[in-house]
Amino acid sequence: MSFVVSASAAALELQSVSFSYGGSAVLEDLSLTVAQGELVSLVGPSGSGKSTVLRLLAGLEKPTAGRIRHHGVDVVGPGLDRGIVFQDYSLFPWMSLAENVTLAISKAHPDLSRERQRELAEEYLELVGLGDATKKYPQELSGGMCQRGAIARVLAMGAPVLLMDEPFGALDPVNRTRLQDLLLEVWSSTRPARTILFVTHDVDEAILLADRVVVLGANPGRIIANLTVGIPRPRSRKETFTRAEFAALRRTVTDHLHGDMLAQLSAADWIGEAAGI
């Protein structure tokens, strides 16, 4: 399957997007563009609507106001041109890894023969280091292996845009490190590079991976900082973490996050009451 990529328009674009759920505003007047081939991290406290941004771009939700476009075309629903990796439920538990990936391939590449689809599934599982586990079911695998499977699935679909919703959030540090490396490796070795929007609450992860870190504030969700990561690629984990730019950027992001949290707290009435004012 080939996707028409218009060079002029941004790969992903949210234009003054608002979203409310059950009467309360989740996102308010949020504008964000992501260029073709860019890897952008989205960080923010819970309640900042970072997952909602992803769901809107995926077409799983419709904005209350504003416009969402993908290469200049309005997003009206989910599409195979935008792959999604959820935190922990991208795989159906009643299908083996191979079946999960084959199902996705059969939707993205219906023109291929069943045989070829199965081969492709094996190849992508091999790529993420799950070549020996293709017949296993998700509950037989560790969280890290499941997320590898989810990544294999989304890569196999060949979508030029990847939307990742805290994909490594539930993993232990070792697996998290491995999967970050895997993601960077896959991203940097593909041409044209995929456009990736990566939601996380881990500031180190956000900086290490991204070209740009977008910080969201809570209640309602809005962008409070948009920071370019100047650290050259390829980035080695060890070297990146010792750089002065990394430390400075890390401080800026956390300051923004803490600033927003404090603003939230002082705005809350109960603080005054608790203090006896």
Binding site: R55, A58, L60, P78, F86, F92, M95, L103
Partner: peptide
């Protein structure tokens, strides 16, 4: 909801959705 989202993201037809997601679920 997450199973339904997952099925929508894959672009399953109604028939595939019923057979491969709703039935086993």
């Amino acid at each position: 909801q997450r199973m339904r989202d997952n099925a929508r993201v894959l672009g399953l037809t109604k028939g595939e959705y019923l057979r491969r997601v709703v039935f086993p679920c």
